[in-house]
Each structure stands twice: as structure tokens, then as C-alpha cells.
Design a protein around this nucleic acid. Sequence first.
DNA 1: CTTTGTGCAAACGATTTGCAGGATG
DNA 2: CATCCTGCAAATCGTTTGCACAAAG
Lengths: 142, 142
Amino acid sequence: MQKQADQVIQALQTKGLRVTPQRFAVYANLLARADHPTAEEILSDLNQDAPTSSQATVYSSLHALQTAGLVREVFLEEGVCRYDANVAPHHHFQCKACGKIEDIAWELFQSVDLQNLRSGLKAEGYEVTVYGSCDACTRENR
Amino acid sequence: MQKQADQVIQALQTKGLRVTPQRFAVYANLLARADHPTAEEILSDLNQDAPTSSQATVYSSLHALQTAGLVREVFLEEGVCRYDANVAPHHHFQCKACGKIEDIAWELFQSVDLQNLRSGLKAEGYEVTVYGSCDACTRENR
DNA sequence: CTTTGTGCAAACGATTTGCAGGATG
DNA sequence: CATCCTGCAAATCGTTTGCACAAAG
């Protein structure tokens, strides 16, 4: 599932986008994380040791990676936009308590039948969002 | 499905919230619309003829209506928060072209089985979002 | 008369934009 | 050497907040 370095380079170049250290760093950070960080979280993570990117660059890198089809946005809460290096179709679980987001394998909810939609609507895809409580929050809060 | 005026009054009063013309107007507007407007859209709609509400009031009215359980938020795109007077569980269809959102009856996708989730995650609910193209956009853009 | 709501304007946080300098092809 | 990218700071957009006044109980 994880893309090789040269696949990443290709994906960018195919779209006429340059391969820069910043873009690589943003993508690597996104791959290394299990969660779905916000732009700010990526920024502070990258600059933790040494400053490597400015905030404007993180945003533009994320846009570049999106057009390259390497990254996508996830909107599950107000105000912030989260990013996901998993571009294959899949579902999401979000913990109502801590807000953490976890991927759910696509195969788990294949049963959705888009044929029954109101005629006139042309469905192209779907996604299930499950809300609940994660391990840690279930233990702590009950 | 549509709430009677006195049910609305009750829902607010039960939570110790006052029933004001502005809150009523916001709720009425939300009921009258088939789409899922943003706060801004509600505001400009209400003030179209005569100014009836300020922006801060629309936001606070929406919060009041939420705590009364009459309205809920929907996050399907970046930056904006949309509002929905349909608080019963249901799914959403969003047109990729124009962004319009339409409700999908809950019964249509009842087949999602939450039992297969990774153990540790305690599911409390779910929602399906279908992406595609609406009548108008299918006709125009192809 | 005490509490809660409204309206204005200022504050805020996340994202975008303009622009000068730097790196890439 | 022409193009694209970076980084800074300022601008923008949606939402929230502080405060004085008005309305409701």
C-alpha cells in the first residue's frame, strides 16, 4: 500500500509538479502517522527539531500532493481540514470524545447499494463514517 | 416529521432556553429550505426583505436550537459548517459539481454492520455520504 | 429586579494570497 | 534564463467573544 519513493516522484512529475524536499517531507510525515493530522500538526511536527517548512509551504505542498493524487482531505469536524495519505477508498471511524480518526477497511461495508437512490442523482461513490469511542476514551470516560 | 410550533417552544423551554423571534425565524428558515444552508446563507435569507437578525444572533440561535435538539451540524466540505433541521438519523448525498446536499432516507442503507469493527472501537452510530452529480449538474456538465 | 438574548464591533483561528528571492529544469 | 517553489507577512473567510443595552420571567 505504501508508495515507493520513485512512485511519489513520478506521481508529482506526471502532473508537471516539481519534487522538492518540503513536499517529500510532508508526504513522509503523513505516511508515518497513523492519525489524520491537520496542516498545523504536520507543520509543527516537521519543525520540531529544526525548522524545515513554513506554514504556507505546508499548505501548498498538501495541494500539490493532492493534485498528484497522493493525498486527500477529510472533513469530519468543524473548522479544520485533515489530511490522509491513504487515497484508496475506505471508511472512517471518529472518536466522539478525543476526535481521533481511524481508517476502516473498505471491505467492511461493501453492502451499500447505490441503486436505490432517488432517480436523478448520479452516484459516483460513497463513504461511511462511524462515530463512537476509541479504546483509550472508553477506558477513561466510560 | 415537521415539528409543530408548540413542540419547538417546548424543546427550547425544556433546556431553559427562551423562545425568541430570532430563534424561531432561524428554525423556520431551516425548515423551509430543502438544502443545508450555511449560517451566512440563513442570515442573508432572513435579512433579505428587512433586517431581522445580526450574524452573531444567527450563530447563537443555531447553537440554542442545537442544544434543544432541533437542529444539527453537517460537515461535508472545508471551512463551512452547514445546518440541518432534520435531526433524525439519515444519510447525505452531495453533488461534486455544485456542492448541493440532499438527504437520503435512513432506511436506504441499513445494511451497515458495525459488529465487524476492530475490537476496541465502540461504535455508537454511523452515516453514509454519497458523492455524485445532481439532476441539474448531470444535465449541464455531463 | 435578575437572568438571558441581541447587536455591534473587535478578536480569533484556519487557510489563502501577493510578492521578492531562491531553486530547478 | 524562464519557470516553478519557498517563505514571509498581510489579507481573507467563517466563527466566536466582550460588552452595553433590551427583553423576558
